[in-house]
Simulated scan of single mutants.
Amino acid sequence: MITQRNTHLIVSARLISDFGAFLNMVALATYVYLLSNSAMSVGIFLASRVGGGIFASLIGTRFYRRWQGRAPLIAFDLLRAALLGLLLIIPASQQAWLLPLIAFGLGLGNSMFAIGLNSQLPRLIAPAQLLKANAWITSASSAAMVGGSLVSGLLVAAFGFETVFALNALTYVLAALLIVPLRFEKNDVSEQPQRGEWFALRQGLRSVPVVAAMLAVTMADTLGSAAHNVGFPIISKLLTPEAASTTLGLALAVWASGKLLGARIASHLKGSENSHLERRFFCGVALMSCGFILMFQQHSLYGLLLFALPAGLGDGLPKSA
């Protein structure tokens, strides 16, 4: 009964947290571009957000070995809510220097929340239910991408940025409230690696060259993702100057829908021995890259949305391989 209750709370918290993450990804990227009218400012903002996520990936494992349970998860939710609250009390004319710091904090909070929740699943859910719970979490995260991306642009167009920032802060507070009732099993086993994670990674890459190639492609994919994240608000404003946020939200929603579809297709393609996963990974990356290249060659909203779908479809395949 506790497992089922924890599963419902975790899936709901992850759904709301990821919804909030994509809500502010669309709103803030557009806000920065409209505020500065500079692609460089958008690049700095998004680089700061990615930097926060990278920093979280470096410290996440050690952090959650020392501090476990509900408190860190709640703290990172409240941190994200507080950062967005700053945009409601600080005048827009004084926000230019603050936005990269907010972006870094949001990237850090998003990644640390996800790392903390995923790493503690064995203490929250019975082993027999972990696979099913992971499937629900993945589906909730994908649905949040679609919903957050689509709703953000529509809310900005209808009510303005301040309303979206306030609503976004509330989503993180709600996610924190859903974490409070979680019940953790005692962690009796200390998982301290003998030589460290980096040693294990190096050994794994040497023994399986194809994994090294996949990692190299993934790193290049990350660089490309940063570029198209900068390009999204710019092309949205170029195509529809009067409704850039709505266009950005629609494009990301179609992309996220394609990603969800790609993940579902990949789950049905997997055989009992997970054969041909490497080939599927590289094909997915190629499809995603071609989709994004064609997206940014379009001169109409319909063309943009048309190629956003295969870009997301390709993105979903390697993530599930």
Rank of each mutant, 00 (worst) to 15 (best):
L46N: 02
V26N: 09
M25D: 03
D18S: 13
R49F: 14
Y33S: 08
A13F: 05
L9Y: 13
F19W: 12
S12R: 07
G51P: 11
I16G: 04
L35V: 12
S41M: 08
V11S: 10
G51V: 02
S12K: 05
A27H: 04
A39Q: 08
G43E: 05
A13K: 11
L9D: 06
I16M: 03
L34S: 14
D18L: 07
N37C: 10
A21D: 14
V26W: 03
G51S: 00
A56S: 08
L23N: 00
N24T: 13
F22V: 01
Y33L: 07
D18I: 12
I16V: 10
Y33V: 06
L46G: 01
V26Y: 11
S12A: 15
F45D: 00
S12H: 10
I44N: 06
S17D: 15
A27M: 01
G52E: 05
A56M: 03
R49Y: 13
F22Q: 06
S48D: 12
V50R: 06
N37A: 10
A13D: 07
G20Q: 07
S12Q: 14
V42F: 05
Y33M: 12
G43C: 04
S38Y: 10
F45I: 11
F45C: 00
S41N: 08
F45K: 03
G43V: 02
N37R: 11
Y31W: 12
G20P: 10
F45N: 04
V50W: 01
L15V: 08
A39F: 08
V32C: 05
M40W: 12
A47G: 13
G52L: 05
G43N: 12
Y31P: 01
A47N: 10
S38G: 03
I44T: 08
